[in-house]
Amino acid sequence: MKHISSLPINPPARLLMGPGPINAAPRVPRAVAVAERIARSGRALPFALEVVAFGDEEGTRLGFQDSAEVREHARALRRNGAPVGGPGASAGTPSRLAAHLAGEQENLRQLLQNLEDGRLDAAARLIAHAGNVVVIGLRNSSPLALHLRQQLAQACDNVRLAPLPGQSIGEDLAGLGAHDVVVLFGFRRRTAGFGQLVAAIERRGIPLVLIADSSARRYADGAAVWLECPIDSASAFDSYATAMSLIHLLATGAMGAHVRVTRTRIAAITSIYDDLDELEAPW
């Protein structure tokens, strides 16, 4: 029988730190303490699940019907992107590293399979030929949007990130039209108004490249190009390694569409780097 601390989702009370009415009561922190005490005492996972579901000698209860409901609640939180997990085996053990590698390889395999129908090239062409390129990413998607903008800026002078601090997205969408493009990142745990943003872009006839995981498929019909990117992970957090690979492919494709223009711009940027002494000298 596996010990609670050896499992990737543990202790069970940690699973309850997600959305929903369960979080409203102070009994949740008490349940966390109970489950951690169980882990320290050497009791096994099934016992801890029963405690969380039905209560213990201190009367700690969370209102679940049984331990199966506890497990399903945990799975639902993880599917929604909640960082479900707790103390357990070190992340650097050979088994954990092997599981991480296998997960990353599977995500990359799925991504490349999704791109086999030519949609990557279609997205790259939209970006390369657009009058203006606006890259949007909120919450977890923000660093991805920033990185894509940085990559595209090496080849294009018409790329901007939105929204900038102190601004709303409406200020960046105003004036865009059919000859421009919006690249929108929408990985799970999106803001509540994400669907309204997609609809607003579509109503204005602005071509949209939508990059997200499978939870955003319901928005794919509003996009000119839909790029689905898996971010599943065996650990508590989603992994964005595959998303970074997609950014690399997309930026490379956009740069390749105008090789001469790209080379001229890169040369100009490099010259300014030298003038300002911005980069350290290579070894």
Score class of each variant (00 low, 15 high):
V84G: 01
Y219P: 00
M255T: 09
F47N: 00
P207I: 07
E171K: 04
W283M: 08
I272W: 04
H73T: 15
L144M: 11
E57A: 14
L101C: 07
I4P: 01
D213A: 11
R78P: 00
R204Q: 13
A39V: 06
P46C: 07
A53K: 07
P29Q: 03
R27H: 06
S233L: 07
R125C: 03
L249G: 11
I38K: 02
G85P: 10
C156V: 12
R96M: 11
Q196E: 13
T262L: 02
P143H: 09
A53W: 02
A82M: 08
S6P: 00
G88S: 09
G193T: 05
Q113Y: 02
G55S: 05
P12S: 02
A53R: 04
A254L: 06
E69N: 07
P29I: 06
Q65W: 10
V70Q: 04
E202Y: 05
G175E: 05
V209G: 07
R217V: 12
L161R: 14
D157I: 00
R149K: 14
V70C: 07
D157Q: 13
G170P: 01
L146G: 11
L16I: 13
M255H: 15
N158T: 15
D66V: 13
G256T: 08
H73G: 03
R27F: 01
I231K: 03
F64A: 12
R203F: 04
V182G: 03
P26N: 07
R160N: 13
R79L: 14
L62T: 15
V70E: 07
S141T: 01
I9M: 12
V183M: 03
L250P: 12
R217G: 13
E50F: 01
L246E: 09
D121H: 10
R263H: 11
G170Q: 05
E280K: 06
V182L: 03
A124K: 00
A130D: 04
G253T: 12
S41Q: 12
R260L: 12
G193A: 08
V133Q: 05
G55I: 00
F237T: 15
L97E: 14
E202F: 03
F187S: 07
I136L: 09
W283F: 12
S233K: 01
R139T: 08
M1P: 10
R149D: 09
D221W: 05
L138Y: 05
Q150W: 10
I231N: 13
S168Q: 03
R218A: 11
G137H: 04
I127E: 04
E57F: 05
V133P: 01
I127Y: 03
D172N: 08
N80T: 08
A74K: 07
D180R: 05
Y219D: 11
R260M: 10
L115T: 13
R263Y: 00
G88Y: 11
Y273D: 15
D274F: 08
V209W: 04
L208C: 06
D157E: 15
L126S: 06
